[in-house]
């Protein structure tokens, strides 16, 4: 059994870091995890998605359509754009604050996200609508929404990790100066999510320990592991030189 999480939004909102945190938390819990992210030219202003698949049956990083257990959408239209990925009875967390494309300033169509939220409310039964601006108000910037929304998922019972497991990963992954504020953002997200716990009342993937060879397949590794790998290569090269 695998638990599939699709994160989507607009380039620059921090979906990559959020997906890396989820993948790292799963890795630290000895679960098989695969992930894939949109990077590159779409990094700013374009639609982006990150796929995270957790569990012994996750054989590849891309989530097939109709198979996401959870969609975390950083923007209303992006939630709708990716709704085909949602599993029957899957859950959606969506930020109701829209990001207007630049084309909107040149040729206004009146897009403000509200139509998308109405559509989501009608078509998704397990839906949590959050407001990133309100959620991130104490932190002075919606840039912390990527971590706060993981808190919402955690609080609502949509992630099979403990709060501590996630805060541990935050400590290990996020730049030192930002650890505290990110932890606070995460915990504030948890509080909001706990109010929506009815949405989380579905079974999530059971923790099956990964087989060692499967772990080796983990598509994206964290910087620490990457450093170790590079060091190992360097050692190898030094040996060959001798």
């Amino acid at each position: 059994m695998s638990y599939n999480i699709l994160l989507c939004g607009v380039g620059g909102q921090g979906t990559v870091l959020a997906s890396k945190l989820l993948a790292a938390t799963a890795g630290a819990a000895d679960l098989t995890v695969h992930s894939a992210e949109t990077i590159g030219m779409a990094q700013r202003g374009g639609p982006v998605t990150s796929h995270v698949r957790i569990g012994a049956d996750a054989f590849s990083p891309l989530i097939p359509k109709g198979s996401a257990d959870l969609i975390i959408a950083f923007e209303p239209a992006e939630a709708v754009r990716n709704l085909d990925y949602l599993k029957k009875n899957g859950a959606v967390i969506v930020n109701e604050n829209c990001i207007k494309p630049v084309t909107e300033s040149l040729n206004p169509t009146g897009y403000d996200g509200s139509e998308m939220i109405t559509y989501l409310k009608k078509s998704v039964s397990r839906l949590i609508v959050v407001n990133a601006e309100t959620l991130c108000e104490p932190f002075g910037s919606t840039k912390f929404f990527n971590i706060a929304v993981l808190g919402v998922a955690e609080g609502a019972g949509l992630l099979d990790f403990s709060k501590e497991e996630i805060t541990d990963t935050i400590e290990k992954t996020v730049k030192k100066d930002f650890v505290e504020v990110n932890k606070k953002a995460f915990l504030r997200g948890c509080e909001i999510g706990e109010k929506e716990s009815s949405v989380g009342e579905f079974p999530v993937a059971s923790k099956e320990p990964a087989k060692s060879e499967e772990k080796a397949l983990t598509a994206r590794r964290m910087s620490e592991e990457e450093t170790e790998r590079i060091l190992a290569i360097q050692k190898e090269m030094a040996k060959k030189k001798k």
Partner: peptide, 8 residues
């Protein structure tokens, strides 16, 4: 859905 081309 809004068209969302990537921009500088």
């Amino acid at each position: 859905l809004p068209v969302r081309p990537p921009v500088l």
